[in-house]
Simulated assay, not measured.
Amino acid sequence: MAVYITDHSTSVLKTHSWRTASNSAAYLLPHITPTSKILDIGCGPGSISVDFARCANHGHVIGIENVPDPLDQARHLAASQGVTNVDFRLGDIHALEFPDNTFDIVHVHQVLQHIADPVKALCEMRRVVKQGGIVAARESASMTWYPENPGIGNWLEITQRMGKAKGGNPHPGRYIHIWAKKAGFDLANIRKSAGSWCFSTPEERQYWGVSMAERVLFSGLAKTAVEEGYATKEELERISKGWREFVEDEQAWFGLLHGELLCWK
């Protein structure tokens, strides 16, 4: 039921490793206590999970992924930073291997858009969170950039088309609260907010633009796009060139808006 259109190659993990609790889960941080027990679904290389573990320094964090590829990197990150109250394991968001009412917080970041049945996933998240606990979700909603860049525009069109064709829901941040209501959360217990990323300084453009230029050529996205006819190798090369033009343009910036949810059981 997973429809993730790329993989966990080096170029992909490079972008995921940039994510921290402060730049990607600030809306949730005030609700983490020193003793919180947290499940981080789709933990990737563990950068958000490890930050959660620091906040819940007398609690515990479990990070799960549906494939083993990024988990060694996550374990290495925790060990290198001396964080011991976190562990990483395989898991399926549609069938979580935990008893009912296990966690104080269950968190996902840019995961629901990559699965075929986000309502079922949210039902599982609701099941394993304690009464009075929080299910937290953050999903991209829209993107914008300056100046006009045909390569970036083509990248967005191709990735959205691939995601929809494979049964996903690209950039659903504006309506994830509808999924939460269908999963059984009372509307009065759903808090909606918005957060954003912006890449505009030379360092930010270098990180984001170079990472995306590499991902479009050297990841599962590139392989799938060519093999399944969503794009030619030449198109992907033009997209990569567009991202590198973004990096070099001192006037350029890229913004990404996220929809955020806090759902109390």
Rank of each mutant, 00 (worst) to 15 (best):
A74G: 01
I32C: 02
P202Q: 12
S22H: 06
D104W: 14
Q73K: 12
V119H: 03
L28F: 14
F88T: 03
K192L: 07
G91T: 01
A180H: 01
W208H: 03
K192D: 02
R19S: 08
T232A: 08
W179Q: 01
A222E: 00
N57I: 14
P170A: 01
P34I: 10
Q251S: 13
A222L: 04
D40G: 01
K166M: 05
E227T: 12
P118A: 04
A121T: 03
N189Q: 07
R244S: 11
I41W: 02
T6C: 04
W264S: 00
V247Y: 07
G255C: 13
F103W: 01
L256N: 10
L28N: 01
E204D: 14
I176L: 08
L71I: 07
G132Q: 09
R19I: 12
I152M: 15
R215F: 02
A222C: 08
T159S: 03
K233Y: 09
E157S: 01
Y146G: 08
S200H: 12
L122W: 10
N85S: 06
I64W: 00
G242M: 03
N57Q: 14
V83S: 09
I176R: 12
Q110P: 06
A116F: 15
D7H: 13
G91Q: 11
A21L: 11
R19E: 09
E234Q: 12
H16G: 05
V50C: 05
W243G: 00
L256Y: 10
K223G: 02
I152F: 13
A74F: 04
K223P: 07
E139A: 03
I158V: 11
L257I: 13
A183S: 14
L236N: 00
T6S: 13
S11V: 03
N154K: 15
Y4P: 05
I178V: 14
L90D: 15
A188C: 14
I64G: 09
R191D: 04
Y27L: 07
S211C: 10
G63K: 00
A180K: 02
S36L: 10
E250M: 04
Y4K: 00
M125Y: 15
N169S: 12
R174K: 06
E157L: 02
R244D: 11
P147A: 06
H258G: 08
V61A: 05
V83T: 10
A121V: 08
R244G: 05
H177C: 02
V3Q: 03
I64N: 00
W264N: 00
T102P: 03
A225Y: 13
R191E: 08
I41F: 10
S196M: 03
L262K: 01
D249C: 12
A165Y: 06
Q81P: 11
L217D: 01
E248A: 11
L77R: 13
V67R: 08
I5E: 00
R238W: 10
S49T: 12
N149Q: 11
